[in-house]
Design a binder for these strands. Sequence first.
DNA 1: CCAGTAATGTGAATATTATCACAGCGACGA
DNA 2: TCGTCGCTGTGATAATATTCACATTACTGG
Lengths: 217, 217
Amino acid sequence: MTLKKPRKKVSLQTVERMSIYRKILEELHRNGVANVYSHHLAKMADVSPAQLRRDMASFGSFGNISKGYPVYQMILTISRLFGTDTLQNIALIGAGNLGRSLLFYRGFEERGFHIAVVLDIDTEKVGKVFAGRRCYHIQDMEKVLPDFEIAMGILACGQQNLQNLVDRLGKAGVRSILNFVPKVVHAPEGMHVEHIDFSAIMEKLSFLTRFGASVES
Amino acid sequence: MTLKKPRKKVSLQTVERMSIYRKILEELHRNGVANVYSHHLAKMADVSPAQLRRDMASFGSFGNISKGYPVYQMILTISRLFGTDTLQNIALIGAGNLGRSLLFYRGFEERGFHIAVVLDIDTEKVGKVFAGRRCYHIQDMEKVLPDFEIAMGILACGQQNLQNLVDRLGKAGVRSILNFVPKVVHAPEGMHVEHIDFSAIMEKLSFLTRFGASVES
DNA sequence: CCAGTAATGTGAATATTATCACAGCGACGA
DNA sequence: TCGTCGCTGTGATAATATTCACATTACTGG
């Protein structure tokens, strides 16, 4: 890996914004734009120019003082920050409705992620091929995962024994998990679990719809 | 509406944690637990006891000083905060892979949300019924949405004209949108748009996998 | 009845995050 | 060549979020 650790510390919120910046930068790049000013990019990303400059500066400064930021180079830099300059293999656990729709989701491949293997507990599904990926039984996790060099996983399965499943994944070499199952799980030492709960986000939106006026936009 | 506005101001981060608390409280309730202490609930939710108490206190205090918090009453209170004590109709825009899997997702109904109507731009899909919901053409949005009293929508469609679509939804009475489309859109005045970008979350996880050690857990 | 215990709610302190405001630089035109 | 302009990067400041620590309160047991 050519990129050294971020010099000071890149906050998680900065990292989240980086995804947004990169998305916009790629659109600019497709449109042939070579350089962009902080206030321009900031406006498109709905953040303040100062914040954008600080975000950019937080992992090394690349802005030209009179041309602005070089679009293509920033894309490469952010990709390296994410480690998605090379394709990353990930494992999908659960081939239900949501899981299968994720297999067909093009966004992952476009952004450097490849669902390489599918695991399920349902013996009906084991052995079948979904969108080009063979489905293995969860029981064989420890045998299968190392073959694909899996460091990240996606949980789209049932709620039963979820914590146990996470622990096993960790022991099998998975370092990070994107969890779609609406159940609280604790990340084992050294692992990261990011939780997406669709209903929780709807609840937040519902709250905003009712009380949003009290929060200034 | 029996609940008055939160007395001071409930921060968004508090609201997000409320979803977690409620999930745990419902599990406790199913297990017959009537009261729970802040340190107990906090441990299950992976937050500090002080934070939990502040969160609870932020929209009115209900903790009994020696019994802890009443589980069932807290569930009701949080539900009222979210406005999900009554079922909320929502509209789904896009009946592709992701959209259809959301139609089958049970979590919404369990938490007070009901996808009442489906819109798509593909005339092949219009008129069909997916998981019990009839699919209408996006063009007829303005006619269809008022019939169902829709205040919230879910975007799971293509990227074309997304901003325009959001604007139209706003004019048709939709106040909040959950956007699954990986494209930046700006919320019109008075609306709220919450963005879920699967790849962005994978990017964050990928970053954590590489540099996570520098961020203390 | 009263002291001891353990919980909540909350002012005060701290940590974190975002904004302000400007020094300093490079491009450009006269 | 030099002055002007507008940009970036960043110290200083402000705003926000979290944690600490304790006053206050309800229960319990002797």
